[in-house]
Design a protein around this nucleic acid. Structure first.
Lengths: 325, 325
DNA sequence: CGCAGATTTGAAAGCGCATTCATTGCGTTT
DNA sequence: AAACGCAATGAATGCGCTTTCAAATCTGCG
């Protein structure tokens, strides 16, 4: 493997000049620059990342921590991070915590030794721990806010409001809400709006895990409540609800309307297609990387952005309320 | 940030001893070892990964290249890789090629400068290019075979055979096959078995992209063929088929049976739940890392493993064939 | 033509660690 | 008791690069 020194020799310049020709082209005269570039090309020179990192103090890697890669929500954010990172950075180290808060902290600390900065999707990690992690290196949070730490969030409240208004327009008066994990920032956001829409009474079905089986199980509670519509913490839960409703012989949307949250691909694969709130997940990934780069460049600032806009997508799982008996 | 030298001084030993105490504990006397460990702990010592990598020639990173992280197939493999890599390695660099073969090669080469070895899920990259990449560093392929390169594969042929036998047992005599991309290794494997099952006539619906809309579009061809069952390249396609069938008023499984491939989570979220071939994706990720480690340790060998076993999961989308007119 | 100031260049000094090699100290063997 | 082998240690070297810093070259102007 050719080293920078080899390139320098081949180009008839010093290693210092070769280094500059490659990383700061305009600090070198045109003649030498082309000589170096040609020599590098000709030798198939590939810079040694470890050496670059050691000498410069920057690995040009960034880290991404997610609870579950096979969850389309996080996978999409990851794609956004990837796309934005390409070009300005070398690569992104991804860590999947497997929804296990215990290893999460350790994993973050470990990852921080290898990267310049971290994008953290960690709904369940206690705020204090997040703050402690932030002392070890730049961090940007996704879909969550913690005092003193930059974050990119979604306008969750607006999403819930849009959903509620949509249901009200369809003459629903009683809607059930199947909540997510009690400790989730995002869940708290949702709940701030539930009582805000006049003319709609929201029945709280309680906190549930944000997964399909939880929706399936919670459905009977919804039915008991007498609500004509269900608002679910996320699409996975909504999917579980729809499945259980069908099993109980309740028709969607004729007998009951269902609204999800997140707009994962599967939402369009089921029948009826799910009405849900769509989040700009890819964009969130982009923004997170941008903010990280900003934090890396400037120093001491905690850039904050307005919550990303969300949008209700009306599909087939919502319809006018049936007449109550 | 404390360096190894600081630790050594605090422990009253030489940097060499400190280094050994941390990375090869049994080459150091118990007394000094504990001294070093205590000093390290006390100073909050974190080894500098870049320096370790430069000095040792090993980054302890491994790379993973996938076409699309938001595809549950690859996401699950990624989880498997993650899980196995944790412990023996530092981290895994993930690269999403966005299904773009053009950037794929460049991405791989770039990633190879940062990792010790690569796990490559790249169904579409030409074999020659794959081989060229393999000259730059250890590579393990997933779900694909290329001459001279270690790979972990699934027993795809067995899966198709199981599906066909299942359908035959249900008295299906004509089944349509919706194929995947023509250049896919996995697709070629499937086709080797199609004609092998006696008593079943397979109607070839041609090659299609492995996505939901493609299944949706191919469905009308299936209906035209007079087949009483459809075998799909993967679950996404099968989902598209089911959706279109419903739109056309064809009942599943009463009028026609549908079989998928991969067993993605969504397969159980739809109604009827999809009969499909389940692949040990997580295990594939494990195996890939194991093989990579083996390739890194020994030298010059190309370990090969038997294809991973697959299993037909019978759910609700298949039923006895209706009587032909 | 000569000199201040700006621009290019190369020598050299690490970055933090692993690792080789020579040295030391120790227990064994005959 | 001498000689030997082995384990434990530290000094020193270098991994390949970036980045001062000072020297060299070039620019324009009086």
């Amino acid at each position: 493997m050719a080293t920078l020194r080899d390139v320098a020799i081949a180009a008839g310049v010093s290693p210092a000049t070769a280094s500059r020709a490659l990383s700061a082209p305009d600090t070198v005269s045109a003649t030498r620059r082309t000589k170096v570039l040609e020599a590098a090309e000709q030798l198939g020179y590939q810079p040694n990342r470890s050496a670059q990192a050691l000498a410069s103090g920057r690995s040009r890697h960034l880290g991404l921590v997610v609870p579950d890669l096979s969850n389309p929500f996080f996978a999409t954010v990851a794609k956004g991070v990837q796309a934005q990172a390409r070009g300005t950075r070398n690569a992104v180290l991804v860590a999947d915590t497997d929804e296990d808060p215990r290893i999460e902290h350790e994993l973050v600390r470990d990852l921080q030794t290898s990267v310049d900065g971290l994008v953290l999707c960690s709904p369940r990690m206690p705020a204090a721990l997040v703050q402690e992690c932030a002392t070890q290196g730049p961090i940007v949070l996704v879909n969550r806010e913690v005092e003193g730490i930059p974050s990119v969030t979604f306008d969750v409240a607006s999403g819930i409001r849009q959903a509620l208004l949509h249901l009200r327009a369809l003459r629903h008066r009683t809607v059930a809400y199947i909540g997510g994990p009690a400790t989730s920032w995002s869940e708290a956001q949702r709940r701030t709006v539930l009582g805000e829409v006049e003319g709609i009474r929201v029945v709280d079905i309680g906190h549930h895990r944000p997964v399909y089986p939880a929706g399936f199980a919670a459905t009977d509670l919804v039915l008991e409540s007498g609500a004509t519509a269900v608002l679910c913490y996320n699409d996975l839960v909504a999917l579980g609800v729809m499945s259980r409703l069908r099993a109980r012989g309740v028709r969607v949307p004729e007998d009951i309307s269902v609204v999800g949250f997140d707009d994962i691909p599967t939402a369009t694969y089921v029948t009826p297609m799910l009405t849900t709130v769509s989040l700009p997940l890819t964009r969130a990934g982009h923004e997170a990387v941008t903010m990280l780069d900003a934090a890396l460049a400037e120093d001491g600032t905690t850039p904050t952005t307005a919550p990303l806009p969300v949008e209700l997508v009306v599909r087939e799982s919502t319809a006018p309320a049936h007449e109550s008996p």
